[in-house]
Design a protein around this nucleic acid. Structure first.
Lengths: 382, 382
DNA sequence: TTGTAAGCGTTATCAA
DNA sequence: TTGATAACGCTTACAA
């Protein structure tokens, strides 16, 4: 392994000079600069970043802590972070699959000294103290926290608003007897969506029947199982809101198996707008969440919060959600619904369908996808 | 910031002892161990990994160099790597979006000192020398290389075999006039798939008409544009093989817009078996590639190649591809086709459809997806 | 413009 | 079982 010493020797200068050349630094004569460069490339010298960050105490690396890398949602978050990081000349050190608080903390500890900061998503509410401990060691941006973030910038998703809007949409279509398939207990997104569901019912003055909040765990199979329970209820609910699209897919499978027509006999809706959603049969009405943007904005927030000289009040941002009405809920007159929405929520319409590329597809694609028309409105805000 | 010195002082021992305690090392009396532990937790001491890896010259970090993080393919690769890394107690330092060789090299350089090795995918053939230069600095595993890897373990995808099998399938269905939408020139996968296409035609004794290899660039919109060119050809080809699924989607859009029935008027097939493929209308016949496994196996290969005492001959592995026959090519008698395949290729059938979860979905899901039946055979091998 | 030398926070080698 | 102390490879005052 060739070090700065070898280069210095070969070029006939001191190691300080070599360092200066490699840091593009101040006053080095053109002559010695050339000598150093040529010696370095002759020896194929690659500076040791660990040593460098030991002295400078900066690394140009950003840590990313996620509960899982699974599914297109987290993949998109990572991609958003990565692209933004690239612009800032940062690399990202990823550690995922933290099912428990100890693993989360251990991962953060092992990053000490090799990262300049952290973007972290806590798996559940239980990890609040762990997160706070981490916060004392690095500048952290929190993804989608539920707990108080005292002093730590955070960015989250308009789960509540999205779910509420979905339920409002269903009640406006005339549904009064709604079921929900919930996500795993303790999961922030799941709980916010459930809260939105309940609030949405209250908005319409609907008193919910008992037993129509069926437990799911965000997997397709749990959606299938939940469907079986729902189909046993008498009278049958006329609409089901699944807390994510995967469960909605399972639900659709079950309804198809049971010979229940969607949306004729039952309306079905989901949450997330995964890439598949628009290709389902029938195309799924759901809430679009831009995971890429979540990652990208988290990165932006981190840069702002660290580069800012005066410690501004910690930002707390929200990535909006978009209601995407397709055929699985038997939508009628979208125009009228939108007008009502605008009046009620004071939000603008989403971009027309042809530009509304699903998050998982290239942003560059231009042609219309093979899909039914989609249409949405933006919910939640910054 | 609290360092090992602070802990030593607080515990009334030397820094060497603190180090020993934290490395779970050899002989430290239970008494001093406790003293050190309590001092450390009182001060909330987190060891500095940069300093540690400076002395040990190991970091427990694996670098990952990818051309892009875009789309579910790379996301899945990353996920496979990440999961495998977790098992080995490694973290991954990601750097992606290397469009050119210089960026690739710069990224690798900046990792020097903070990684123990590298999993790298070269964007194109032009980066061969860069890769070789990197190889001299770290233990590297190459993803999907085209060039000679002299001495460097590599793992790739059965692109050629998959494409050839696809064409064989089409010719067996009676198609003699096939078009292909190719991927970007210089891209390894694209070229191998093109080679498979040509070989497949030769297998059937078909002399290809000129002008039926239409240039695409793996984007949906390029598929759409290619379709327009194809539709102008007289006579019209009866089948089109797109070098990836995104282009097949664009192609389907165009054919729908043009009123061309698939598969009645024209057979359409793709490559990759992205999650959407089975939900398309009609469901897309394609070649399944397990990106997750590619990542996972790359990681395994890296571990093997570094942990092995005797430098075994560098492994060169292949992730098999699976032909997935759905409706977009107007398949008939799948059983007969499979029997022929087994005779010809000497390979076994893929697992039944209900277990063949698309790579992008949870491996845990159990219920049958909302999809047409899929069926495939494994191509290429280890 | 260049060189000397003191860190940066660890681990590892010796002695004690 | 412990403690000095010399690396590890670099950056950065401070001197020259």
């Amino acid at each position: 392994v060739v070090t700065i010493r070898d280069v210095a020797r070969a070029a006939g200068v001191s190691i300080a000079t070599v360092s200066r050349v490699f840091n593009g630094s101040s006053r080095v004569s053109e002559e010695t600069r050339k000598a150093v460069r040529s010696a370095a490339s002759k020896l194929d010298y690659w500076p040791n970043s660990a040593a460098r960050s030991l002295t400078t105490s900066r690394s140009q690396v950003l840590g990313v802590l996620l509960p899982d890398l699974f599914g297109e949602f987290f993949s998109e978050v990572i991609r958003g972070i990565d692209h933004a990081a690239r612009r800032e000349k940062l690399q990202i050190l990823v550690s995922s699959s933290h099912t428990d608080t100890d693993a989360l903390l251990a991962a953060a500890r092992s990053m000490r000294g090799r990262i300049d900061g952290l973007i972290a998503m806590a798996p559940d509410k239980g990890s609040a103290k762990a997160i706070h401990q981490i916060t004392r060691k690095f500048p952290v941006v929190l993804l989608n926290p539920r707990f108080a973030t005292n002093g730590c910038p955070a960015i989250s998703i308009a789960n509540f608003e999205g779910a509420r809007a979905m339920v409002n949409h269903l009640t406006r279509l005339g549904h009064r007897d709604l079921a929900m398939i919930t996500g795993p207990p303790g999961n922030v997104d799941a709980e916010e969506r459930l809260r939105g569901f309940r609030t949405g019912l209250a908005d319409a003055g609907v008193t919910p029947r008992a037993g129509l909040e069926i437990a799911g765990d965000f997997t397709e199979s749990s959606g299938y199982r939940a469907a079986i329970k729902i189909l046993r209820r008498r009278p049958r609910p006329s609409a089901v809101f699944a807390a994510n699209d995967y469960m909605a897919i399972g639900l659709l499978s079950a309804l198809r198996d049971a010979g229940v027509d969607v949306p004729g006999d039952m309306a079905v809706t989901g949450f997330d707008d995964i890439a598949i959603a628009q290709y389902l049969n029938p195309p799924l009405t759901t809430v679009h969440v831009d995971a890429y943007e979540l990652g990208e904005q988290a990165m932006r927030l981190w840069v702002e919060s660290t580069r800012t000289p005066t410690p501004a009040p910690p930002s707390r941002e929200v990535i909006p959600a978009t209601l995407v009405v397709r055929n699985s809920c038997g939508s009628t007159q979208p125009r009228a619904a939108e007008a009502r929405a605008r009046r009620r929520w004071g939000v603008s319409l989403a971009q027309p369908a042809s530009d509304a590329a699903p998050a998982a597809l290239p942003r560059s694609r231009k042609s219309a996808p093979v899909t039914s028309r989609t249409r949405g409105r933006v919910l939640g805000g910054r």
